[in-house]
Amino acid sequence: MEVLLQQIVNGLMLGGVYVMVAVAFTLVIGMLNFLNFTIPALFMVGAVMIWAVMQKGFGPGVDTFLNDTVGAQNKWIVGVVVALVVVSLLSLVIERFTYRYMKAKYGDATEHALPLVSSLGFLIIFEHFVIGRWGSDPLTMDSPFGNASFYVGTVQFSTPQTISLALSLAIVFSISLMLKKTKLGRALRSIAERPDTATLMGVDVNRIVPLVYVIAGLLCGIAGVLFAINYTTLDAYIGDKVATIAIAGMVLGGLGNVWGAVVGGLFVGLLEVLSIHWLGASIVKVPIWGMLLLILIIKPTGLFGHSAIGKGKF
């Protein structure tokens, strides 16, 4: 019983990472009707950036400089900042070549499979850039917080993991509040439903869409950073591994539904950890993808989706 309880806690902690990636996917799908494969890439870049800052990835010169200026124990803060700045900039580049280019050329970026293909291109390029620079072996880093943890009864809670889970839920909650209550949120929802009519209201769609990319990119970047800090081992393909599971979580919750992505993300985290516990690590993808295929057959709109795949469902 206690072992099971511990596994459930571990599963929810891992789920917190999937939640952010699933929400990133769902935002882009809900707004732009586009399964954006640069999301795993940005997750990986976020994780690799904080690793590189922490573990001399940018060379001994940079490392010495950081030790002298901010101090060894504060390097992780620099890592977080570098990771978030890099994913934001990359998000803007990606927007230009996926959404804006298609929109300018064909009038509507979302009715084509092309942005999906170009986003896949970005994913592969980013992965190979990282492999070219830092190799394909696992990259390990020392957690800046060590093994800090606390107990509730006999169940152990890792402090950084608990903070990460709380942070990811707080971020998703703020995004959902922003969508519901603010002028920007209304504009985003109106673009999700009818971008051309939103333009008639004076919404500058070409300015707001990059913002959606940056928000989604930051979600992935933060998730990547938290993953690196909490699990301390990563590689160039970590984005693929996490994102495929997060996609399963998103579909479970319902495409384009933010709270669905939260529930779905936590659920797949739980499912992963419990599957490893009961069935072993080698088979863990089978229950997750089996669950996904089952959902697609029984209820393709997911648990909370209220319409078929398409636009406008926040």
Binding site: R186, R189, S190, E193, R194, D196, T197, G312, K313, F314
Partner: peptide
């Protein structure tokens, strides 16, 4: 005011 009204039904 566009043809077909085009109100936002999700709002």
């Amino acid at each position: 005011v566009p043809e077909g009204r085009q109100i936002f039904v999700s709002l």
